[in-house]
């Protein structure tokens, strides 16, 4: 019974910025262990959607349930606790550019581990997370010294350090060359296997979607316009859906 429940359930989500109605009654659900892809044009509201899920953006209306908790009921402290279970990989990576890689990875621990825990285990947690993304040697480097693909990996390591149950990826391969993009997709898969995470992946990189996604939701005109596997959607005759697979 427990495992049947979706771990993220978004219902009738609405969000406007002034006259710009970005999300209209958007609905999705994510099951345990699943990799769900959100596909949509640039500016269609994909980032707004996942930022609502982690409550970086306050929706106008609708219900968001994450790991069994309605996030609009949570106070700041409870929300922070929940956020430890939800990793967020920013499209821009959002690495702290005044800090070393080690400090970047240690930053999320400040809130969630006690001082004693940090003194005891932070070092090994950082090394473990860096090894998970294959970049152990960069520990004392600054973000500016890293290539685009490496920065993406470090950002991923930083979300992994708290061992989240869910990871939200915002266009993880956009702006990377095809080879690096494939390496990142591989990495996403291996992480899912190793830590048994579920993920929402925003992407329009068809290779990445094919490699990582189990199911796709098309976000068009603010709605959950079509839903299915890659093969199902490719057979869809609707011109707005077809556009994406040409």
């Amino acid at each position: 019974m427990e495992s049947e429940d979706p771990i993220i359930q978004v219902s009738n989500l609405n969000k406007s910025f002034g006259e710009n109605h970005v999300l209209r009654d958007f609905t999705l659900s994510l099951s345990k262990g699943e990799n769900l892809v959100i596909l949509g044009k640039s500016g269609s509201g994909k980032s707004v959607l996942i930022k609502c899920i982690i409550r970086l953006i306050e929706p106008d209306s609708g219900e968001i349930i994450v790991l069994g908790q309605d996030i609009s009921d949570l106070d700041q402290d409870e929300m922070d606790q929940l956020r430890a279970n939800v990793g967020f990989l920013f499209q821009s990576n959002a690495l702290y550019d005044s800090m070393t890689v080690r400090q970047n990875l240690e930053f999320p621990l400040r809130r969630h581990w006690t001082k004693e825990e940090r003194a005891e285990k932070a070092e090994s947690a950082v090394i473990q997370a860096l090894e998970d993304v294959g970049l152990g040697h960069t520990i004392d480097m600054m973000p500016i010294e890293l290539s685009g693909g490496m920065r993406k990996r470090i950002a991923l390591a930083r979300t992994l350090i708290l061992r989240p149950k869910i990871i939200l990826y915002d266009e993880p391969t956009t702006g990377l060359d095809p080879i690096t993009a494939r390496e990142i997709s591989d990495l996403m898969n291996s992480i899912q296997k190793k830590y048994n995470t579920a993920a929402i992946i925003i992407s329009h990189d068809l290779n990445c979607i094919r490699m990582t996604g189990n199911r796709i939701i098309m976000l068009i005109e603010g709605r959950n316009y079509a839903e299915g596997t890659m093969d199902e959607l490719m057979k869809n005759e609707d011109p707005k859906v077809k556009d994406f697979f040409e």
Binding site: I54, L56, F90, L95, D97, F107, R110, R111, L162
Partner: peptide, 21 residues
């Protein structure tokens, strides 16, 4: 300039998400 660039590169959002105020 420092906080501005942290804002536009989403570093401030990243702190928020990691539970640091």
């Amino acid at each position: 300039a420092e906080l501005g660039s942290m804002r536009v590169t989403e570093q401030i959002d990243a702190m928020e998400v990691s539970g640091t105020n």
